[in-house]
Amino acid sequence: MSSPNSYFVPGFGISRAVIQNEIRYHCGPDAIVRPFTHQGRDGFLVTTAGPPLTKAQIEDLKAASREYEEKQSRRADEADVFVNQPIPVNQRIRRSG
């Protein structure tokens, strides 16, 4: 068995839930993925002893991510949930003096 390799996959268009669920299918049962920032770009760090993702597999992940996000937004519409609703948090008030 070969040693694990790590590489960066830009995250634009890829849902975290999708890549985490499908990475083992594409790269083997030992593959893991985590959020990562490389040179200021958000994406994912993939670690696997299996083959790296191909361009076609990345495109498949993007397509699956679009479907996932559309399904999630339809579900939110049905539940009448406002996703970007402000949430109050306890903040300390600064007092000068």
Rank of each mutant, 00 (worst) to 15 (best):
K62L: 08
L61I: 09
A49F: 01
R75H: 15
R94K: 09
P88Q: 06
G28S: 04
V89H: 12
A31L: 01
S3T: 12
P4I: 08
F12D: 13
H38D: 02
I14M: 01
S73R: 15
F12Q: 11
P10V: 02
P88Y: 04
E70I: 11
A76K: 15
C27N: 01
I14G: 03
V89C: 08
T48P: 01
A76W: 12
V9I: 12
I14K: 03
N21T: 06
Y25C: 05
A64E: 10
S73E: 15
D77C: 13
P52A: 13
Q39E: 14
N5T: 13
E22T: 01
G50E: 03
D80F: 14
H26G: 01
Y25G: 03
S65D: 09
Y25D: 10
L61Y: 05
E69Q: 14
G40D: 07
F8T: 05
F44V: 04
S96L: 13
Q91A: 11
R24F: 03
V18D: 02
E78V: 13
A17M: 04
E69M: 13
P4N: 13
Q57M: 08
S73Y: 13
R66N: 09
R24G: 00
S96N: 11
I32D: 00
E59K: 14
V33A: 06
Y7L: 05
V81K: 10
F82Y: 14
G97E: 08
Q72V: 14
A63R: 12
V81G: 06
I19M: 02
